[in-house]
Amino acid sequence: MPASKRPQILVTGAAGTLAQEVIGQLRESCDIVAVDFREQVWLGDDIPSYCIDFNKRVFEDLFRRFHFDGVIHLGRIMSSQETRLRRYNANVLGTQKLLDLSHKYGVSRVIILSTYHVYGAVPFNPALIDEEAPLKAAGLTMDLVDSVELENLANIYLWRYPDLNIAILRPCNIVGPGVRNAMSTLLSGERAPVLAGFSPMMQFIHIDDMADAIVLTWHGEKRGIYNVAPHDWVAYQRALELCGCSQLPIPSIPPVLPRTVLRLLNLRRFPPYLMDFFKYPVIIDGRSFAEDFGFSPKRSLDDIFHYYRENKHPV
């Protein structure tokens, strides 16, 4: 009796640490094709890897050649990267192209990585934000418009094409070895800025747990929008203390002053919109994802902070 065909999966954002961890977990049971528009990465002789812009015609050739069963879209550009126009072209137009091709070529599972930042940081946020909460970020800053539009676009396809079985994941702060976002940069430094008078509660998820969550989503059958977060949280200043960071208090006004100090700390990739996330808590409710996919983080906050305490400037 012939062996059953292994699923063929397209993973975008292959140059990122998260994508590579996901690929590492799936490569034994699936045939992976890796894509990144920034650079081509070598992931082993068994994994074809390409550097392709989603908006180029050659991208469709991959769908013709490999007949993908699933797409795991981890290639969202963060607001600390690239210009606003380039982010829009990649995050919105590129994702639309990806979803159109997925529908055209009969892909049966699509996973899209979003971010909890789409909720926006405002003083009137509820204590726990569930998936039904409005996405306020676009009204607060232009730097998150493309992230919100990406989500709105994915939501349209979620309901228009149920055969795609789209799952949209909104994780909290992803941190850990190899992560190069703004939060990881702060926790890995010897000193970190804090806004005077503010220490909002924050959530952190280890990159290994986030990779586990994505793999669980691939194996699961549920579709929809899901927050991904542990059930605990900690005050920002306490997190810095546990990571061994000395604190540099700065006034929250005028707005230009915090940004100037951040530049002095060589945090040039620190997006200005994050200042509000260091004022107001944005705590997301991850219970729906935990229940629907059987997810429970294996790495505690102590594990996360121990890593940063023992590995200063790890990225």
Results as ranks from 00 to 15, higher is better:
S188Q: 14
P314Q: 07
I205R: 05
K279S: 00
A290G: 11
L195Q: 09
L93Y: 06
P162K: 04
S252D: 11
P258N: 06
V33W: 08
S147G: 04
V256S: 15
P272N: 13
N173D: 11
I9E: 08
G220Q: 04
W42E: 15
P177W: 00
D303P: 12
L248I: 14
T83C: 00
G244A: 01
F270L: 14
D143N: 14
L264N: 05
Q8W: 07
F37V: 05
V122Q: 11
A127L: 08
I214K: 05
T217V: 04
E82T: 08
L18M: 13
Y105A: 00
F198G: 02
L187Y: 12
C51P: 03
L93H: 11
T185I: 02
L169N: 07
R223G: 13
N152L: 14
I284P: 04
R27Q: 15
D212A: 05
D46L: 11
L101F: 12
Y88V: 01
M275G: 03
Y273T: 05
Q203D: 06
F277N: 01
V110F: 10
M142S: 15
L150M: 15
G44N: 14
N152V: 00
M1N: 11
E82P: 00
D130F: 07
N55G: 14
L301G: 12
I166K: 06
M275D: 12
Q203A: 09
I111S: 06
I52F: 15
H73C: 11
H206E: 07
S29I: 09
P254I: 08
P255L: 03
P251E: 08
L10H: 08
Y226T: 01
P7V: 03
T12E: 00
P200I: 02
L158V: 00
D146F: 00
Y50T: 08
A229H: 12
M1T: 08
G13S: 09
I77P: 01
Y119W: 12
V11N: 10
D208K: 15
A167R: 00
S184G: 15
Y307T: 09
D146G: 07
I283H: 01
E39F: 03
N311W: 03
V175E: 11
E21L: 15
K97G: 02
D61V: 00
I52C: 12
R268S: 10
D276N: 14
L98A: 05
S108Y: 01
A154F: 00
Q203G: 10
S300M: 05
S199I: 02
L18I: 12
V22H: 09
I168R: 05
D232E: 15
Y50S: 08
I72E: 04
E131H: 03
T115K: 03
A213N: 09
R170Q: 13
